[in-house]
């Protein structure tokens, strides 16, 4: 079974460390893995992305229409992933908007949520919206935005929760309680969302 994760955001959001956790998870599961990280000018406000490919894969980059799960940590950055989403694949859209200088003055120029959603839906993706930044603030660790998303990913991609939590603790050995809380919140929201949807469909 092949499983392709594409994670994208802006430098400082934890896109690379999130990818590292997923890659370490795959290693622990004994799966073949390719983990590509874009190490560019992210530190200086630029875009950042990482790709984790599990299973019988060869290339380090996810081919078009092959991403099973896309995690958009900064909303507008998600636009770069449209060609990668597998029809029927899942896209997690974090509501975080990070404005570069000119958009700070003209926030109205930032792409609308509805239009981004429309494009992904046209591409055949299933969408999952979340405000991970707010939840991370609520648990008292704003930096844990990526860990909230890790909770969501773990549920949506049916990853082995125990192994993910072990890897999480190994990778981030500090603020363990708060990180666990962030993870749990993300995991539960994804779980409840699914339950609600099923109720709606029933």
């Amino acid at each position: 079974m092949e499983n392709n994760f594409y994670l994208i955001g802006v430098g400082g959001q934890g896109v690379i460390s999130l990818g590292q956790i997923l890659a370490d998870y795959a290693l622990k599961k004994g799966e073949r893995v390719k983990f590509f990280k874009e190490v560019g000018m992210a530190q200086r406000g630029g875009p950042a992305h990482s790709e984790v490919r599990m299973g019988e894969v060869f290339g380090s980059r996810i081919p078009p229409l092959s991403a099973d799960l896309v995690v958009v940590m900064e909303l507008a950055e998600g636009l770069k992933t449209l060609e990668l989403v597998k029809p029927g694949g899942m896209v997690i859209l974090n509501k975080k908007k990070i404005y570069p200088l000119d958009l700070m003055v003209h926030p109205e120029k930032y792409p609308k949520e509805a239009e981004i959603a429309y494009l992904f839906e046209e591409a055949g993706a299933k969408l999952f919206w979340i405000d991970a930044g707010e939840i991370a603030n609520e648990v008292g660790l704003p930096l844990a935005e990526n860990i909230v998303l890790l909770g969501v990913i773990t549920y949506l991609a049916s990853l082995d929760k125990e192994i993910i939590l072990t890897v999480l603790k190994e990778n981030i050995p500090y603020e363990v309680e708060k990180n666990m809380a962030a993870f749990d919140r993300g995991y539960k929201i994804a779980e409840e969302n699914k339950a609600e949807k099923e109720k709606g469909e029933a």
Binding site: V10, M41, R44, G45, G46, P47, A76, E77, L79, K80, L82, P100, L101, L103, Y110, P111, E115, I116, L119
Partner: peptide, 12 residues
């Protein structure tokens, strides 16, 4: 369309 909407992030 997605390309047109992309947000440019000049590095500083």
């Amino acid at each position: 369309r997605a390309k047109e909407l992309e947000v440019k992030r000049p590095t500083s």
